[in-house]
């Protein structure tokens, strides 16, 4: 990447002094936070909606008398998660806790009491924000070259041996230092690209496929996902994938230096980590 397209200001310092670089531009930072808030609100209000019928099916239909592939339920004071024929005890976490007998406990839902109607109001409000923010962000990313310069993988990064090395480095918590840390690393780019161009679009499309009015207007949606209940299942799998992304994303923030990372996503300024020094 050439300096002309990277807004790096404090260049050409010696390697011994930590460089502060301007890494994250304002529109990207604003989108990140709007997106973070909407995704949390959507996951938590989605949990309320899921609690109304905590069973997932494949196909065109699915209700109480049909075969679900996933159930979160309770038997007396014991919670369980049933996946096909596998049953996992989840007492205290899912299905049953001393404070709740809902599939997903109120600590993790919006609102923090059971109200399907209110959960839906929150869900659809933030769904609009997510969609508008995503479209705006993608348009911005294309025209500002954020996509090309910061997110797209270079031909070097796309090599299998290089990717394998990145995976091994990540597994050993060895992160790029110095000038190499100026840009997102390959795995980071893959994670961000998957969320922006795969996971969020998929969660939006499967969400729309659950709308009976949109099914009438765009029946192709049902063909793509194999029926409404399949779309609902994929919607929840996407939500689970987003949860894992968030967990790993936050873990990486902590491991890579939470203060530096938070400054970078709040102010844009990022201190390039140095080799051999403690991460902070």
């Amino acid at each position: 990447m050439d300096a002309a397209t990277t807004p790096v200001t404090l260049q050409n310092r010696s390697d011994s002094t930590p460089d502060l670089v301007y890494r994250t531009r304002l529109p990207v930072r604003i989108w990140h936070w709007i997106n973070a808030i909407s995704i949390f609100a959507l996951l938590m209000s989605g949990a309320t909606i899921f609690n109304a019928h905590p069973r997932l099916y494949w196909g065109k239909y699915g209700a109480n008398y049909d075969d679900p592939w996933l159930i979160i339920g309770k038997r007396g004071q014991e919670g369980f998660l049933q996946l096909g024929s596998l049953e996992i005890p989840t007492t205290g976490l899912l299905g049953y806790t001393p404070w709740s007998s809902k599939a997903i406990p109120p600590l993790l839902t919006i609102p923090n009491y059971y109200s399907l109607a209110e959960g839906r109001q929150w869900h659809f409000f933030f769904a609009w924000i997510l969609i508008i923010a995503l479209i705006t962000f993608v348009i911005y990313s294309i025209f500002s070259r954020h996509l090309k310069n910061d997110l797209a993988l270079s031909s070097e990064e796309r090599r299998t041996t290089r990717l394998w090395q990145d995976i091994k480095d990540h597994a050993r918590f060895r992160f790029p230092t110095g000038a190499a840390a100026r840009n997102y690393n390959a795995l980071q780019k893959i994670a961000y690209l998957s969320v922006i161009f795969l996971l969020i679009p998929l969660v939006i499309l499967t969400g729309l496929t659950m709308s009976p009015n949109l099914n009438a207007a765009f029946p192709v949606l049902l063909d793509i996902f194999g029926g409404r209940q399949s779309a609902r299942s994929i919607h929840f799998l996407c939500a689970a994938a987003l949860c894992s992304f968030i967990l790993i994303h936050l873990l990486m923030v902590v491991l890579a230096g939470p203060i530096n990372e938070m400054r970078s996503i709040l102010t844009g300024w990022y201190r390039l980590p140095q080799r051999g020094k403690d991460l902070l």
């Binding site: 109304a52 009976p212 609902r232």
Partner: peptide
């Protein structure tokens, strides 16, 4: 036709 309950289940 398919009936979709607000709760999430569907029946045809």
């Amino acid at each position: 036709t398919r009936q979709d309950c607000v709760e999430g289940w569907s029946a045809i």
